[in-house]
């Protein structure tokens, strides 16, 4: 999966989790929590959607790797290799 697709995958998951939030202008290098209303329960959901949709495992100890869109892409790049974007 391309980096841009990984980003799209994450944004689409956030859109599912928080349907009231506007996800169209998320800044890639700013913490997601500062841009939209996400708490630890929501990060759990992001992780669960990643495994449900892409079979990707994110152990609890790696949750902080999901802080920004850029860090998500870096962290997920090896895990998402060869997967197809589902949006």
């Amino acid at each position: 999966m391309q980096d841009s697709e990984i980003k799209q995958a994450i944004i689409s998951i956030i859109g599912d989790i928080a349907p009231d939030e506007d996800t169209s202008n998320l800044k890639p290098d700013v913490r997601l929590r500062e841009q939209i209303d996400l708490d630890s329960m929501d990060f759990l959901d992001i992780v669960m959607e990643l495994r449900k949709q892409y079979g990707v495992n994110v152990p609890d100890t790696d949750y902080m790797q999901l802080a920004t869109l850029d860090s998500c892409v870096n962290y997920l790049r090896p895990k998402m290799q060869g997967k197809t974007l589902k949006v």
């Binding site: 989790i17 349907p19 009231d20 209303d37 329960m41 929501d42 959901d45």
Partner: peptide, 12 residues
Amino acid sequence: LTRLLKQLRLRH
């Protein structure tokens, strides 16, 4: 209420 909506994937 926001937490509830998000967890159940509902809109306000």
